[in-house]
Amino acid sequence: MNITVLYGTESGNSELIAEDLAAKLNEDHTAEVFDLADFDPNNMTADKFYILVCSTHGEGELPNTALPFWDALNAAAPNLDGVRYAVFGLGDTFYEETYSHGSEILDKRFTELGAKRVGEYGRHDASSWDLGTDLALEWLPGVVEAFEAETVS
């Protein structure tokens, strides 16, 4: 299976999680990691599985490194029919109203453009002091399974 792990980050936590997920995935699959800042949304294809790891900035906004991707995504509005992705969102319940909203912005847009989210929506809460990687690695097998189930059917 060919997997692209994309991350959008402010403090580096999402990057670390993305790298840990890719390392784990590379045990059985082929996974590549990209900062959203260096990834062109026009390159998203239906034969790959995308895992998005994205934090939340300020008042429920996208993190800094996701902004160029967001602009490109809106400018090109590529047809993402057949593209499947999973989301692991980072946020902080200290800011209740906007908790984990950063990743949700991209999730919503992906869906609007025709892509389909598979598996459970993963979340990490900075207020919990849980290690994001621990939660993400627990979450990973479920979404991989969900993707595989999709491909078979």
Partner: peptide, 13 residues
């Protein structure tokens, strides 16, 4: 602001 301090979990590694 403990959730800001939680970035140390990243640095621990």
């Amino acid at each position: 602001h403990q959730s800001t301090k939680a970035v140390t979990r990243q640095f621990d590694r």
